Simulated assay, not measured.
Amino acid sequence: MSRLAHSVVSPSPMGSSSHKVHTSALSTLPRDLITLGDYSAEQIGALVESAADFKRKVKSEGQAFHPDEPLKGKTIAMLFSKRSTRTRVASETSIAYLGGHAMFLGKEDIQLGVNESLRDSAQVISSMVDGIFARVGAHEEITTLAKYSSVPVVNALCDENHPTQILADLLTIWEVFEKQGGSLFDSVKGLNVAWIGDSNNIVYEMLAAMPKCGMNMSVCTPSKYPIPEGIRQRAQLDAQTAQASVTYCHDPVAAVKGADIIVTDTWVSMGQEAEKAQKMIDFDGYQVSMDLAAKGGANKDWIFMHCLPRKAEEVTDEVFYSDRSVVFQEAENRKWTILAAFNAIFSK
């Protein structure tokens, strides 16, 4: 494959002059990051470019800490109702790099919405910290926290959205498909993304961001797991504006036709373990494999993405550990996009 070298390097167009182009877009970000659906294409691009810039400074130039320490003297509360690996490591190291203090609060540490309402918790916690990074369950939990918090809130995950993950996906795609000297939009516009999997927060967030950036999406879910109509309508409007396309189907072979990027995720999300037996039946034929890509006619340089953790029924080892897979590059990029979001939002 011609693009394999990109799996270990960050994009080259992230020199200081390119980064400065989007300084104004970063300064106009909303106070909170709940979903990329609330952000313009320019704001999304600015965050991804900022993430690439941080990655270059740390990995290529050896910058151990931000020289300006934008979070010096600040405490960021990390409210994690759900356990994590990538999100916790990425966020704590990002806060340290920016000179701040990370306060991890798991579900056993505080009474988030248990003996105290979310509204009360938001008001109390935000009165003592400078920012909140929250990994919760229901979408209403993150919106309630944001509504009643006196400090910015960044969504680490909820059941409808996962913005920092999709920012990391965009950074990864840019690194792989970078056009020489091109911006994020120059490089990703017109790429074909095939989603093969569940109707969940990952594909919802992809639909909130990727069509807006000019990427074409083919979304394949079993008929029992449709994409909500509101999400479809918004994605269609974004696609029309950016001259992109969004299509939906239930046949994985048809979905990967012409795909540059094939993406899947867990079929059984955290808290859905009781549904596993039925989902194994419903998702029969949805495993991503070399055979599926060949039968469907994916583009010759197609790559595979998965936000992890991965289970064998979702993708074969042949794909997951192949040169086509960029899953570990994608996982690392969670740090750089979280770092960019924290720097832009919590340092104001």
Score class of each variant (00 low, 15 high):
residue 169 D to I: 14
residue 119 R to Q: 15
residue 18 S to I: 07
residue 42 E to S: 14
residue 244 A to V: 09
residue 113 G to L: 12
residue 344 A to Y: 05
residue 234 R to I: 05
residue 96 A to F: 14
residue 79 L to M: 13
residue 253 V to S: 08
residue 294 A to F: 01
residue 80 F to V: 10
residue 29 L to P: 08
residue 176 V to M: 13
residue 31 R to Y: 01
residue 205 E to P: 09
residue 24 S to F: 04
residue 289 S to F: 12
residue 15 G to H: 14
residue 326 V to L: 11
residue 15 G to T: 13
residue 40 S to F: 00
residue 51 A to D: 10
residue 201 N to Q: 09
residue 122 A to Y: 12
residue 281 I to S: 03
residue 59 K to D: 10
residue 300 K to Y: 00
residue 11 P to A: 15
residue 86 R to S: 11
residue 186 D to F: 06
residue 176 V to G: 00
residue 267 W to S: 07
residue 264 T to H: 02
residue 199 S to I: 11
residue 287 Q to G: 12
residue 33 L to F: 09
residue 261 I to M: 12
residue 163 P to W: 11
residue 113 G to S: 07
residue 80 F to Q: 02
residue 89 V to M: 12
residue 333 N to K: 04
residue 78 M to K: 00
residue 314 E to R: 04
residue 152 P to V: 08
residue 157 L to E: 06
residue 8 V to Q: 14
residue 69 E to R: 14
residue 283 F to H: 07
residue 118 L to F: 15
residue 158 C to P: 00
residue 329 Q to A: 06
residue 32 D to Q: 06
residue 131 G to I: 11
residue 197 G to R: 07
residue 38 D to T: 11
residue 129 V to H: 06
residue 336 W to L: 09
residue 138 A to L: 02
residue 69 E to G: 02
residue 133 F to G: 00
residue 161 N to F: 09
residue 238 D to P: 01
residue 208 A to V: 05
residue 148 Y to E: 10
residue 188 V to D: 09
residue 1 M to N: 12
residue 316 T to F: 07
residue 210 M to H: 07
residue 315 V to F: 01
residue 205 E to T: 14
residue 79 L to G: 01
residue 336 W to K: 02
residue 86 R to E: 12
residue 254 A to T: 14
residue 264 T to R: 08
residue 37 G to C: 04
residue 130 D to G: 14
residue 266 T to N: 08
residue 30 P to N: 10
residue 214 G to I: 08
residue 342 F to D: 02
residue 180 Q to V: 10
residue 61 E to P: 01
residue 286 Y to M: 04
residue 319 V to C: 01
residue 8 V to Y: 08
residue 29 L to F: 12
residue 80 F to K: 01
residue 344 A to W: 05
residue 51 A to N: 10
residue 101 H to T: 14
residue 118 L to D: 09
residue 95 I to H: 02
residue 108 E to F: 03
residue 214 G to W: 11
residue 198 D to S: 08
residue 8 V to M: 05
residue 318 E to Q: 13
residue 309 P to I: 12
residue 92 E to A: 04
residue 66 H to D: 15
residue 253 V to E: 13
residue 80 F to W: 05
residue 134 A to N: 07
residue 63 Q to V: 15
residue 294 A to K: 15
residue 23 T to R: 11
residue 293 A to E: 11
residue 140 E to P: 00
residue 343 N to T: 03
residue 232 R to D: 13
residue 347 S to W: 06
residue 221 T to R: 00
residue 69 E to C: 01
residue 54 F to Y: 15
residue 23 T to M: 08
residue 223 S to E: 13
residue 205 E to M: 06
residue 321 Y to Q: 03
residue 98 L to D: 08
residue 113 G to A: 09
residue 269 S to T: 14
residue 102 A to R: 07
residue 29 L to S: 12
residue 337 T to F: 09
residue 139 H to F: 05
residue 89 V to P: 03
residue 83 R to W: 03
